[in-house]
């Protein structure tokens, strides 16, 4: 699954650790999601959308 996390995070000037703290997950989780190697759970996807102020579809798209 492709995602726009790195771009969205860069727009806010957040580090991966900052985003991980906001989501309540480990930094490694953010790294794996951004690399497309880990599909987040639905609750995490909703939290990501809330954090970036967009919809889940804006963040994730199928390959």
């Amino acid at each position: 699954m492709r995602n726009a996390l790195p771009e969205r995070r860069a727009e806010l000037g957040w580090s991966q650790q900052r985003l991980a703290d906001e989501l309540g997950v480990s930094r490694q989780t953010v790294i794996s999601i951004e690399k497309g190697r880990f599909d987040p759970s639905l609750p995490v996807a909703f939290r990501l959308a809330a954090v970036f102020g967009c919809t889940i579809e804006d963040l994730f798209s199928p390959d």
Binding site: G24, V25, S26, T29, F38, V44
Partner: peptide, 12 residues
């Protein structure tokens, strides 16, 4: 310690 370990990649 993260707030939601069950949602982290380590849980997988």
């Amino acid at each position: 310690a993260v707030d939601r370990p069950e949602d982290s990649v380590e849980a997988r």
